Amino acid sequence: MEKLLVSACLLGKRVRYDGGSLALTDQIVERWLSDGRIVSVCPEVEAGMSIPRKPAEIVAGDGEKVLSGETMVAEKGGVEVTDEFITGAQVALELCQRFHIKVAVLAEFSPSCGSSAIYDGSFSGKKVPGMGVTAALLRRHGVRVFSQYEVAAADEMIRSLGE
């Protein structure tokens, strides 16, 4: 049975920077849970970051640029947390490798998990196209990354891999 990686906050775990969650109430996710398909991760918590913690954004770029050393992740106030975000991404990748995971559903707009859009680094609430650090690292290693808005597409992918 194909497993998939899912952001812990999407499963109702209160791991977000503000101590909240983004719990999904979706029949597909419920089926994945009952089937035992889900491996849960919060890259930031896995890297040792606290709950709650200061909000963080990628400065002038996206996860690809963070991984290539061209930019950084900083907390509101300017403290750099790039190493923590890279460590969290590596933990997520190790889980994918351990469980042979080829599909991930991650929280959109997160500097770790955003798959198509993230905040622009100005802490103004502006979103820009781009990936978070974890999404970028997983994609580099062949994992297909979806957001919580693409659960049906992720389910189709899981079903096609299982055939």
Rank of each mutant, 00 (worst) to 15 (best):
116 S>D: 12
67 L>M: 13
83 D>M: 02
144 R>Q: 10
10 L>Y: 08
58 I>C: 07
28 I>Y: 02
147 S>P: 02
35 D>P: 02
124 S>E: 11
146 F>K: 01
8 A>H: 12
97 Q>F: 05
46 E>R: 13
66 V>N: 10
121 G>M: 09
26 D>E: 08
66 V>Q: 11
163 E>P: 04
72 M>C: 12
52 P>Y: 06
75 E>Y: 07
10 L>T: 10
83 D>C: 02
2 E>L: 15
31 R>G: 11
100 H>R: 15
31 R>D: 15
37 R>H: 13
125 G>S: 06
3 K>H: 15
103 V>D: 06
128 V>M: 01
78 G>T: 02
137 L>P: 03
74 A>S: 11
61 G>W: 12
127 K>D: 00
81 V>M: 07
78 G>D: 01
143 V>R: 01
111 P>L: 08
141 H>E: 03
19 G>N: 10
11 L>T: 03
136 A>V: 05
85 F>R: 09
27 Q>R: 11
104 A>Y: 02
98 R>F: 05
104 A>C: 11
114 G>W: 04
63 G>Y: 03
103 V>G: 08
90 Q>P: 06
57 E>L: 09
11 L>M: 14
126 K>I: 14
6 V>N: 07
48 G>I: 07
41 V>H: 09
9 C>E: 08
110 S>Q: 06
60 A>D: 15
4 L>N: 14
117 A>E: 14
2 E>N: 14
68 S>V: 09
30 E>Y: 05
134 T>H: 07
74 A>H: 09
113 C>R: 05
123 F>A: 08
61 G>L: 08
9 C>W: 02
54 K>E: 10
131 M>G: 08
25 T>H: 11
63 G>D: 07
114 G>R: 04
101 I>K: 05
30 E>H: 11
93 L>H: 06
91 V>K: 09
44 E>Y: 05
27 Q>L: 14
28 I>P: 02
98 R>D: 09
39 V>K: 13
22 L>Y: 13
117 A>M: 11
69 G>K: 10
123 F>K: 00
92 A>N: 05
96 C>N: 04
161 L>I: 13
23 A>D: 07
103 V>R: 07
28 I>G: 01
8 A>Q: 13
35 D>F: 04
154 A>D: 00
69 G>R: 04
77 G>Q: 02
88 G>K: 09
122 S>D: 10
124 S>H: 02
